[in-house]
């Protein structure tokens, strides 16, 4: 009897499925540009790096007729097979967000010469030749970090500032190097404390570790911490709220997250880079190769808005603009490691 009831349930559900069939089938329209976005570790919702990429696609979707899908690979092998599925599934542009895609996107781009590819933070050191249908979107993070470093040095009362990095890799060393140099140029007496959350991808997705590191830096006397750590940075913010310190946000504008606590944001305009790449495909002006975004290209910078204008005086802004101009002119060359 019980068994019959179970089978009846299965049958009923299957029947329901059949009935609801055809109500909403995703039929791709022919005239739409199809864009696929594949996220990095941490995924959508990190309020910084990945979200910036997502904003870029959303913004493009609002302006151009395009259809897009996004997903986060569950395991390493999914990166390559996911890119491949998108390329084979008729997508016109496939974007990998993060340097972890370097190998996979290079390989897949060679196999699908008719599809456009873009990779944010593509790792040039991997030494692979970039195919013509792949654009490597690179940022001079050290330049933006330099400015927020200078600002931290101006603002610090304890003459000690901190840096919390995500993964201990050359990419994040660029943030650290720029920040250090900015502090040093502005005020050589200010001490910089540096910690990294780890050596693996998880280091970008570990708020608990972020909070731990930030608390220890605050306890050692730091009053401002620059975090370049993805989702891990949310923990740094928590620590600052608890200790009454200040945080410099990274990648996206995070000033609104905790007004009064977020000093400013070192934005890396991944959204602009992604948006412009999509626009270039729409306008059929796509070009492969390396595209760099620095202060000159307005690809990195700091933000002053209604959430933090009380924290930054006009004198500070003037000084930052002066430094910025010097970098753009080449009078100051910011080291990247």
């Amino acid at each position: 009897m019980r068994c019959r009831a179970i089978f009846a349930c299965i049958f009923l559900v299957l029947l329901l499925s059949v009935l609801s069939c055809g109500q909403r089938d995703k039929e791709a329209r022919q005239d739409l540009l199809k864009v696929g976005l594949v996220f990095d570790v941490g995924g959508k919702g990190d309020k910084s790096f990945n979200d910036a990429a997502y904003r870029g696609v959303s913004q493009a979707a609002a302006e151009f007729p395009l259809e897009f899908v996004e997903f986060e690979p569950g395991q390493d092998a999914d990166r390559e097979s996911g890119l491949r599925k998108l390329a084979r599934g008729g997508y016109d542009l496939v974007i990998g967000v993060g340097f972890l895609f370097t190998d996979a996107i290079n390989k897949v781009a060679q196999d699908f010469p008719d599809v456009h590819f873009a990779c944010v933070d593509y790792d040039l050191k991997a030494g692979l030749e970039i195919p013509v249908n792949l654009v490597a979107l690179k940022f001079r993070e050290e330049e933006g970090s330099f400015l927020v470093g200078a600002l931290a040095a101006m603002k610090s009362n304890t003459k000690t500032v901190g840096f919390v990095g995500g993964m201990d890799i050359p990419l994040i060393h660029k943030f650290e190097a720029g920040y250090r140099y900015g502090v040093q140029i502005e005020d050589p007496t200010v001490r910089v404390l540096v910690n990294y959350a780890g050596a693996t991808g998880k280091a970008f997705d570990d708020p608990v570790k972020g909070k731990e590191l930030a608390l220890s830096q605050f306890n050692k006397g730091a009053d401002i911490i620059f975090q370049a750590a993805g989702t891990t940075g949310l923990g740094v913010k928590e620590a600052a709220l608890e200790k009454g310190g200040m945080v410099i946000w990274v990648d996206s504008n995070g000033n609104y997250l905790a007004p009064g606590t977020i000093l400013t944001s070192m934005i890396k305009k991944v959204d602009v880079a992604v948006y412009e790449t999509i626009a270039s495909v729409v306008k059929e002006r796509f070009q492969g190769g390396v595209r760099e975004f620095g202060l000159k290209e307005d690809g990195v910078g700091y933000v002053v808005d209604e959430h933090n204008q009380g924290l930054i005086s006009q004198v500070m802004i003037d000084r930052l603009e002066e430094l910025k101009a010097k970098i753009i002119e080449g009078q100051i060359v910011v080291p990247s490691h």
Partner: peptide, 14 residues
Amino acid sequence: GAVLILSLAENPLH
């Protein structure tokens, strides 16, 4: 699983 999918307003068969 089909019940779950239905609750997300997708078609389980699809």
